[in-house]
Design a binder for these strands. Structure first.
Lengths: 348, 348
DNA sequence: TCTCCGGATTGAAAGGTTTCAAGTAGTGCG
DNA sequence: CGCACTACTTGAAACCTTTCAATCCGGAGA
């Protein structure tokens, strides 16, 4: 008696090549040939085997396959923050490119938590993925050296690392900060704020550095910059900062703000509008990342655009090269950001 | 001579339990015990084995482990659209719950493409994941029945399916549409538009249906509804629709719009503001999903909130139950949405 | 009729882990 | 001194697939 959910008559166990071979009346090697080198099998045998597979509901066991064949056909992207559209766009670029190379991508999310990142790295290494793309919580963590040393290539995305054990792709954050500040200086602002934090983030430091460079070039003292350190790069933190800034007396309130990312900028924008400030008349705002929502904001947001898709694509290409090309050499690629000017800084 | 990248002296091959056993001077079974039942191994032996593992850079081969042990310890979420914050929030709920159950989650993105969805389902089944959470491109696709029949449980997220071969969790979209429309009717609107499409999406149909119900209850004819069919639920499509609506003569332009999701609403909002319409005075707007950006929009958006994290959590709980509980019974859980009123509908 | 050839098929080995029955040594007790 | 235990450790089998050398077979050529 066979239960209704048991379509192959093997009980709970799922059909193996051996079962298929028995059902089709061929040897196990032939079944494998049908799967891997169908051209070597005569047409008649092939259809018989395929029929048997369909009848039994055969599903190839990837573990066994990988074990024997050595290779897997997946990459992973271990992303820093799945709720930030910047990273989902990067992921899209990765998927596109991987798909073209006939690989699947597993996306994992560390959510800024080092222990989750470590757990995923571990699991992915055990899984013997072909390689890992990662935007690390801490780009200087020692763990990032170990995997390549043991044979799993890693490409670092949107971060820079001093050691040359990996390829990496990133965008010039210092330049981005400078572009933002130069634009504001051109518009005549001299009291500028920089929002971003925590300071442990290299990106935040670099972007601030860029702003300072621009001030320096314009002959302004570093003290001209109001530095607002936030606890994270989120909309909520942007609102907090907005409250602080709007609360300042107009006389020494900055007239413009550069934000370390768009989420911060959107929060700032919303809070300031809510508190009655006019954007850009009372406060000009520049964001960073140019996520899709930046253009759709209350006041369309001027922002520093990063080539997000391109970042993902290039990172994946580097990884594919490292996997397949024995002469691969690690490269650090730096993209150039671009300022997109919208209403939030455009004096009417 | 050992090359600099070869830390274990085994050439390119990575160390296996056998190598560890040899290095530690114990049998292979003991190494396995250290890994799986450390309490059975004497302290001295254990440290010796652990030392050998560290020396050789041993990494457990998950394929072999799975092959022998039968079970894997991963779930997958096959999401419909990684760039829509709604789904990333659902994913977060899933990850939380899975983590508590000591499972990892692989996130895959079908990006609305059926062939990608099919490819991932295939791969995940071959991978023998414990189970799959999915927001399917087409909830009625026959393929969704096959996997559970062959032993991989599936839970459907944010969609409803007629057959009872799966658990599913969803939110009452008809009710959501009704809440949105009732609110607008209360505010005195009688010329209402519904934006959404394509019509192949059950959600769009249900939400529109809810709007129609509300009109009906209020004694309005279905013709009172201006039905704007969009090609997708994106910001860009919302802008398109905005252009169309703003172009209508004020006399028969709708005074309020219900959008099938927030992306659409944000696009509509932005375009209308750009074309000089005042929100909500000239056009009141209700979105759907209440993504974080809804509150941060130009005019904070009234929206129908869905319990996103809860959706993910509950779906995962159902899956975990199905995996571990032999008496599991499939359930269809329907959550209730909630209207969040903000400025975009609040008459000043 | 015999040999040779090539395509089709076969059978066995290998890959790294887990499991489990069986083995060993050491301890306490009578 | 021997026995029964306990605490560890061992070795071999099993999981499922892929690979590859070996075999088989029918037909072409001599």
């Amino acid at each position: 008696m066979v239960s209704s959910t048991d379509e192959n008559g093997l009980g709970t166990r799922s059909a193996s090549v051996k079962d298929v071979a028995a059902a089709a009346g061929v040897s196990l090697g032939t079944v494998s040939n049908v799967l891997n080198r169908p051209e070597r099998v005569s047409a008649g045998t092939r259809t018989r085997v395929e029929q048997a597979m369909a009848d039994l509901g055969f599903v190839r066991n990837e573990s066994a396959r990988q074990l024997r064949a050595g290779r897997s056909s997946t990459l992973a992207y271990l992303m820093l923050d799945a709720t930030n559209p910047f990273f989902t766009d990067v992921a899209q670029g990765i998927e596109e490119t991987a798909e073209a190379g006939r690989l699947s991508v597993f996306i994992c999310n560390s959510a800024h938590r080092p222990e989750r990142e470590a757990a995923y790295l571990n699991r992915l290494e055990q899984q013997r993925v072909q390689g890992i793309l990662i935007t690390p919580v801490d780009p200087d963590a020692a763990a990032l050296d170990e995997l390549p040393r043991r044979g799993t290539p890693i490409v670092i995305v949107d971060r820079i690392r001093s050691t040359n054990t990996h390829c990496s792709v990133a965008v010039d954050d210092v330049l981005g900060g400078r572009l933002a500040a130069e634009h504001l200086l051109e518009m005549g602002h001299t009291r500028i704020a920089f929002l971003g934090g925590p300071n442990s983030l290299g990106q935040v430091r670099d972007r601030r550095e860029g702003v300072l460079q621009a001030l320096d070039i314009a002959g302004l003292a570093p003290e001209a910059l109001t530095n607002v350190v936030t606890a994270a790069l989120t909309v909520a933190e942007g609102k907090n900062a907005g409250e602080r800034i709007a609360g300042l007396p107009a006389a020494n309130r900055p007239t413009a703000a550069v934000c370390a990312n768009d989420l911060l900028a959107l929060g700032l924008l919303q809070q300031c509008v809510g508190l009655g400030l006019r954007i850009p008349e009372d406060l000009a705002i520049v964001g960073y990342d140019d996520i899709d929502f930046a253009a759709a904001a209350a006041v369309p947001l001027t922002s520093v655009r990063q080539p997000r898709l391109q970042l993902g694509r290039t990172a994946t290409e580097l990884l594919l090269d490292e996997v397949s090309n024995p002469d691969h050499e690690h490269q650090q690629i730096l993209f150039t950001p671009e300022l997109v000017v919208r209403t939030s800084t455009r004096r009417s």
